[in-house]
């Protein structure tokens, strides 16, 4: 069923950026990057499994492996994203939660690994250009150290899994209310 447009968009805009529940929340796609059989690169997949049954009703997990422009183009209008990836440029096991725009701007030191041939900022920027609208959301990254095939999580990354899960949940709550009203319908 197509939702009715808001009766008073001005009033509804006041909710942008708030993390409250209720009708103003939007669908949140959790894009899980990385390869589960490549040591710390699999941390997002491990977190997704652990968190999977306990997501709020407006969040859904999508395993993307390598983050592609098409993965972002597939995010429906009006939805927000939380991208979860292993990254270099962080201390091993360090968990950061950044707005997506933060990686284009001043957070260049953090390099999510799963956009592969293109830099993360390029993937995001190209997706936004083609969509013709911003991708609303955040990225939760964990500092990784081991990427060898067949290896398990490194000790610092394994120890940081609770923090990663907490950060994902926090990011979902945060982005659920951040999509502007005009983007939602």
């Amino acid at each position: 069923m197509t939702p009715h447009p808001p009766a008073n968009p001005v009033d509804e805009r006041a909710a942008i950026g708030q993390s409250g529940a209720g009708p103003q929340r939007v669908v949140v796609e959790v894009l899980v990057c990385g390869s589960p059989d490549r040591a710390d690169d699999g941390a997002p997949s491990v977190a997704a499994r652990m968190i999977g049954d306990h997501l709020s009703g407006d969040a859904r997990v999508r395993i993307v492996g390598q983050l592609d422009i098409d993965d972002l183009l597939a995010v429906p209008a009006g939805a927000a994203v939380v991208i979860v990836d292993a990254a270099t440029g962080l201390r091993p096991g360090q968990v950061v939660d950044l707005p997506l725009t933060g990686l284009i701007g001043g957070q260049g030191r953090v390099r999510p690994r799963s956009s592969h041939a293109l830099a993360f900022a390029e993937v995001l920027g190209l997706a936004e250009l083609i969509r013709g609208r911003p991708v609303w959301g955040r990225i939760v990254a964990i500092g990784a150290v081991e990427f060898g095939l067949g290896a398990g999580l490194s000790r610092p990354v394994a120890a940081a899994m609770p923090a990663l899960i907490q950060a994902i949940r926090g990011a979902i709550e945060q982005v659920a209310g951040m999509v502007p009203i005009e983007e939602r319908f």
Partner: peptide, 18 residues
């Protein structure tokens, strides 16, 4: 310097590639 910069001026080329 990048495909993103190129896309601002030559969007059609980037979309063709994609």
């Amino acid at each position: 310097p990048s495909a993103l910069e190129m896309a601002h001026d030559r969007r059609a080329a980037v979309e063709a590639g994609l």
